[in-house]
Design a binder for these strands. Structure first.
Lengths: 201, 201
DNA sequence: TATTTAACTTAACACTGTTAATTATATCAC
DNA sequence: GTGATATAATTAACAGTGTTAAGTTAAATA
């Protein structure tokens, strides 16, 4: 009876094994420099086995990114539970978002820059985890507007402005590590502070 | 006598031919999806000829990006000549920067996202055109601070905050074209306005 | 134990960036 | 004009790529 369940479990296990091997390689060597054969070698299976679990290389990328976003979402939602003041929550969320990007730069780029390139039609499609992350942001911004802390620009625009700022600084710090940036924490704080102040005025 | 000059001219001509073929293909099909053979086909030379003019594929990418940045710089400097009020200049420059990115999305990504990935050590190295673009931004910001329009955060940080905002919104609009953005012009204006207001306060 | 089914592998295709060796071509000296 | 020389461009090859179709092995069922 339970044999089918065991087989399903084993299958899921190998799927996870492939996924984490792929993540590690993508992150360390860059998506483009990782071949299916390399992943296969790492898990000690033949390259074609991967195709029994993932449609192709971009499907593998998609799955890795989905995991990344879930992890980001978890971080953010934990944070929301721990803070009450909406502006403070927004500030901390911005920080957490940027720090997430800097902690896992390759994952971040994979998810927010590389992935849309390889999946041109849809980036934040309905029901996706990416959409959930943005919904989270919208919720916070909406609370700031409701409490009349932010001036009355519509929720959508306000959220998108916030996202632009944190996305921008995250990518710049990742992509140009040798640029003579201001002290990193100061830059991050100023970006967040400036944007929030600008939304109040 | 003039034969050497003519030969040099012819060489330069073919170099340019390769460059613009590469640009067109990179932009239309994406750097990764363009092979040296494809470029060679387009200009009706053998693939290896390209290697007589460019060290390798990333060198070709570098050269394409340099051209792009030069063109952006030109746009911006023209703009500075036409405007006097520093805040107005900054606002217009932000707009011009974003519009440049949206007009040539692939060029923009190639230059500000792809290129640093393939040239990890240096992105905005000294004397590069990229540095010149940031110097331009610094100049404008510095003027705003001098005239005491902006609060006294240091020039570097202020400039970097500005850059983060425009870079962020540009990339989001490019990478997630199907996301339900606010009307594009409104979003762009709000990003710029919010950042400038935030820097004043 | 024989048969069916699922998991996995081997072999192959058409492609990639790049190098070394080779050929064609245009310039120069005579 | 002819032969030597330098330069430009090409051919052939290497080791690698993502992916597919066909073949093999191993496990579960009857």
């Amino acid at each position: 009876m339970g044999v089918k369940e065991r087989r399903a479990r084993e299958k899921e296990q190998l799927r996870q094994q492939i996924l984490s091997a792929a993540r590690e390689l993508f992150v360390n060597e860059g998506y483009e420099n990782v071949s299916m054969r390399k992943i296969a070698n790492k898990i000690e299976y033949s390259p074609t086995t991967i195709y029994l679990y993932f449609k192709d290389k971009t499907d593998l990328l998609d799955s890795v990114c989905k995991e990344t976003l879930l992890s980001l979402l978890e971080t953010l939602e934990q944070l929301k539970r721990d803070t009450t003041d909406p502006v403070e929550t927004l500030r901390k969320s911005g920080r957490a978002y940027i720090e997430f990007g800097l902690k896992y730069p390759q994952d971040y780029k994979l998810t927010f820059v590389t992935r849309p390139q390889f999946q041109k039609d849809l980036g934040l499609e309905e029901g996706s985890v990416g959409e959930q992350v943005f919904n989270y942001l919208r919720g916070m911004v909406s609370e700031c507007i409701r409490q009349q802390i932010f001036r009355e620009v519509d929720v959508e625009t306000t959220g998108q402005v916030m996202w632009s700022a944190v996305h921008g600084v995250t990518l710049l710090l990742i992509d140009f590590p040798d640029f003579p940036w201001t002290e990193q924490n100061k830059l991050i704080d100023t970006v967040i502070h400036t944007t929030i102040e600008g939304l109040k005025a």
